[in-house]
Nucleic acid binder design. Structure first.
Length: 465
RNA sequence: GAGGUAGUAGCUCAGUAGGUUAGAGCGUCGGAUUGUGGUUCCGAAGGUCGAGGGUUCGAGACCCUUUUACCUCCCCA
């Protein structure tokens, strides 16, 4: 049988894992720095927890888990009727009642509701775990991928928004990704647009269409709006809305906000949204670090799919690589309401680790020293030396230096080749003569230089390198 | 979920209008070199041509099905 793995999944070889851990650790460090606490939830949730939370499209992409025991004769009738319902496109607990998690936000909301009495609100947590989607794989799109989320619930303050934007910028600064743009918008402005253009009920159609303007241009958006049933009057208003976006420089926030406030003066919702954007930017300005090269862009065409967002929405892209967004988030006023806990507002962001990986790879931004963990390997050429080498290993490891011994006594050059292939920077050679001298012949694999050292000197050399 | 392109050695690929035992480079392994890797030289192994079925005297090539990757749409990280 030819081995294979499921569509859209990947193996991660040692070098891949090190690189992924580098990303994960960098992001984790920033989360911790901003006072977020770690949380983990199960890989699978009850199907009812997930269904209906991501829109129709989302429901279709949830990986469902088949119930056990379907072949038990006493379940047969139930399973058969359940299967009939599934064929009709419905779910039935007789066949499946669990599913793999689709994102980290809904499980988080579920967690908050279940543990509301133990938590100190505002509750800030971060979560870094894989999620699964039955999407068709493409470049940068997998069926199993990791998300890194930071959310805070129980606070409506825009300080949270401002800090989350800071987390994005700090993390990408540390990862040294160039061309980072954190685009922000407010769902309230979009709702105001729908109101003002006379098609309040078509909010989703409008947002889905204008979100594509980067891809299909103004003409394309207009066509799509027609297709989605908007009339000429609606569309001409939306066109004016879109022109505000292109009229000002990318970072001329204030002019853009002012123009938008003028256009949407009839909508109280939109005015609130604009005021919130202003306040978020003002807070963020005080929190930001001058070293950050990324920029914040107010982008009124930004929509984002997940329909639970109600306030600020954000998305991260880099101009350095052709790739979809590498992060996104927003505020949701009533996420926990879905699980019976009303009045808790939350806001959060997510990092797309797998896409960030692809970006770093493409730009060659991974630090070189991620290659190997082992600092020194002892070649095994002299049987008498083994007890001494064990002692050296113990001392090196006690000093925190990753060290290993080539376990099999095979040909010298084979052992050297192994060290070379593993990218281990130093080789320790102890043969008969070194044994007699009580020293180690230390070879620097990069320069090829060798020198004889005592173990204490060797530890000193490797500690500082 | 809809459409398109592709799948030949571990990797990157070649393979003439269907015609003997399917090739190259890189890598792997062995040797030159039983105390010195990354360079060099010599040699070897490695493929039921993604899988299944069909057309044909004959299929890596043509047809169908299936699977996987990539691209577009949908949607999204």
């Amino acid at each position: 049988m030819k081995p294979s793995i499921p569509q859209g999944t990947r193996d991660f070889s040692p070098a891949d894992v090190r690189r992924r851990q580098y990303i994960l650790q960098t992001i984790r460090g920033v989360f911790e720095l901003y006072g977020y606490q770690p949380l983990e939830t199960p890989s699978m949730e009850n199907l009812s927890t997930l269904m209906g939370k991501y829109g129709e499209e989302g429901d279709r992409l949830i990986f469902k888990i088949l119930n056990n025991g379907l072949n038990d004769p006493k379940n047969a009738a139930k399973a058969k009727t359940a299967f009939e319902r599934v064929l009709e496109g419905k779910n039935d607990p007789g066949l499946t009642e669990r599913a793999l998690r689709y994102d980290l936000t809904i499980p988080f909301a579920r967690y908050v509701v279940m543990h509301q009495n133990e938590l100190a609100f505002p509750f800030r947590r971060y979560q870094m775990q894989p999620v699964w989607r039955a999407d068709r794989p493409q470049k940068g799109r997998y069926r199993e991928f990791w998300q890194c989320d930071a959310d805070v619930v129980g606070s409506t303050s825009l300080v949270n928004e401002a800090e989350l934007l800071g987390i994005y910028r700090e993390a990408f600064h540390r990862l040294q990704v160039p061309g980072i743009e954190v685009r922000i918008n407010s769902r309230k402005v979009l709702a105001g647009l729908a109101e003002c253009c006379g098609a309040a009920e078509a909010l989703t159609d409008i947002t889905v269409a204008i979100d594509k303007i980067d891809k299909i241009g103004l003409d394309g958006v207009q066509k799509e709006l027609v297709q989605r049933g908007l009339d000429e009057e609606n569309i001409s208003y939306i066109t004016r809305f879109l022109s505000i976006q292109s009229e000002y420089g990318a970072t001329d926030h204030e002019s853009r906000l002012e123009a938008m406030a003028g256009l949407l003066s009839q909508s109280e919702t939109a005015q609130t949204g604009i005021a919130e954007l202003r306040q978020t930017l003002a807070y963020h300005k005080q929190l930001q670090n001058d070293a950050w090269t990324s920029r914040i862009v107010v982008d009124f065409t930004l929509a984002r799919g997940l329909n639970y967002y109600t306030g600020l929405i954000a998305e991260v892209t880099t101009s350095a690589v052709k790739m979809g967004s590498i992060g996104g988030g927003g505020r949701y006023d009533d996420l926990t309401g879905l699980f019976g806990l009303k009045g808790l507002s939350g806001v959060g962001i997510s990092f797309g680790v797998d896409r960030i990986y692809d970006v770093l790879e493409e730009l060659g931004l991974f630090p070189a020293q991620l290659a190997s963990g082992t600092r020194i390997i002892f070649v095994n050429i002299e049987p008498q030396a083994e007890p001494v080498l064990f002692g050296y290993l113990n001392q090196l490891r006690a000093a925190g230096i990753p060290a290993e011994l080539y376990a099999d006594r095979v040909k010298f050059d084979k052992q050297m080749k192994y060290a070379d292939k593993r990218n281990i920077p130093y080789v320790g050679i102890v043969g008969a003569s070194e044994l007699e001298e009580g020293r180690i012949n230390l070879k620097d694999m990069q320069s090829g230089e060798q020198r004889k050292l005592e173990i204490n000197e060797l530890i000193a050399v490797l500690s500082q390198a």
